[in-house]
Structure formats: structure tokens, C-alpha cells
Deep mutational scan, measured.
Amino acid sequence: MTEYKLVVVGAGGVGKSALTIQLIQNHFVDEYDPTIEDSYRKQVVIDGETCLLDILDTAGQEEYSAMRDQYMRTGEGFLCVFAINNTKSFEDIHHYREQIKRVKDSEDVPMVLVGNKCDLPSRTVDTKQAQDLARSYGIPFIETSAKTRQGVDDAFYTLVREIRKHKEKMSKDGKKKKKKSKTKCVIM
């Protein structure tokens, strides 16, 4: 069974824990209790493949930012979460993405942009803004509501699919490099 290491990042209060708990335990946590770091595991079937999701729910508070490099190193894919009623959390996505790329030393890291709290009427981040940002990053965008469960499975499952595509691409690139290195030079 394939294991996928997913990391949920975003500013404090955007609903990272609520999304994760909704996926794992099928219930909505409405009281806000700032996370330092929590880890969850769940076995699911995605596109006919049974897999184990190892999900790291991270601290959004700035005082825990020193811990970010460590979990970013171990993560295979990242859910970059903002709240649709919090423009600052949307603007912060850029910083999370840049930090992930720096730590992973790669421009090509599996990510999904997630606009959470889409059940709320007080939207300050337009869907088109988020779609445009995701398009500019070359990553999928999904709106979710941890409260109603809308888009929750889709967000995590899409990230797994992005990781699969990335692994497939990397193995193809690896095979191309191996083929090239088999060419021999004969000096007579």
C-alpha cells in the first residue's frame, strides 16, 4: 500500500485542523484551538488504489514558523489553505509557496490551493482571484467548507493525484537520464 505524506499549511484560523478532522473523523470542530502540530493517518481508496494518507496539520501562528522547514522537508505534497473571508490569509499563500519551493529546492512541488469556509456569506476573496492565482502557479484550486464537508475529500484526493503525477514524471525523467548515460565512448 502506497503511503502519501501530505502537509496542510496556511495562516492561523483558516480551518486547516477543521478540514483535516472532517476528512479523518467526519465531524466539524467549530471551536478554535490553535494547533502546534498534529499528525493523522487514514486509509482510503483513490482511483481504485488503496493508500495510506499521513497528514500533518501544522501551526499557522507566526511564533511556530521555525518548525516549518522541518515538516516541509518531509512532506510530499501540500494543501495551501486560505479562508475566503480573510484576504490576508490569501496573500500569505505566496509566502508559504515560496518557502516550500526553497526548502524542497524545487520549482515543481505537488500543491493544491484550497479556499476554505465557502459556506460563509462574508467572502472577501473572489473565486476568480483564487483561480487566477492557482493557474499562475500551475496547481489545482478547490473551494471547501469544513463545516458542510463540501470539497473536503476532493481537496485531499486531488493532492494525492498531483503527487502521483509528480512521481510518474520524475521516474520518466530518471529513465531518460539513465538511457543517456548508457551511451559509451570508444577510443581507438
Rank of each mutant, 00 (worst) to 15 (best):
K176Y: 15
Y137A: 10
K5Y: 02
G77A: 13
Q129N: 04
E107D: 08
A59T: 03
K184T: 03
P34H: 01
K167F: 05
A83G: 12
E162D: 05
D69G: 09
G10K: 05
A155E: 05
N116D: 13
D126M: 07
D119E: 08
K42Q: 10
R73H: 14
A11R: 11
V8P: 01
C80N: 04
G174C: 05
E31K: 15
N116P: 01
G174E: 14
I187V: 12
D38T: 00
Y71G: 15
A83I: 04
S17M: 02
D54E: 14
M67D: 02
E3Y: 10
Q61S: 15
Y137V: 12
Q25W: 04
K42C: 05
S65I: 10
R149G: 06
G13M: 12
Y137W: 14
V14F: 13
K42D: 06
F82Q: 04
Y4A: 11
E31S: 15
I46W: 08
D69H: 14
E107F: 04
D47Y: 06
G48T: 10
S17L: 00
K128H: 05
E168M: 09
G138C: 15
C51L: 13
K182D: 05
C51T: 07
G10V: 02
S181E: 14
V160E: 13
L19H: 13
S122F: 09
E76Q: 09
V125N: 09
K104M: 13
L159S: 02
K42W: 05
V186F: 06
N26P: 01
R135P: 04
E62A: 05
E63C: 07
L6R: 01
A83N: 15
D47S: 10
K176G: 14
R97K: 15
I84Q: 14
I21V: 15
N85Y: 10
L56M: 04
K16F: 01
S106Y: 09
V160I: 06
V160R: 14
K42L: 05
K169I: 06
E62Q: 07
K101P: 02
D126Y: 08
V125K: 09
L19N: 15
K172F: 03
T35W: 00
D153M: 06
E3C: 09
G12N: 11
D154K: 06
S136K: 05
V114T: 07
G60I: 00
K128E: 06
V160A: 06
L6M: 13
K117C: 09
V152T: 08
R149S: 06
R102T: 08
D119L: 11
S171G: 04
I187H: 03
I84K: 13
S136V: 08
S106M: 12
R41M: 03
I84W: 13
L113S: 03
H95N: 14
F28E: 01
H166D: 11
D47A: 09
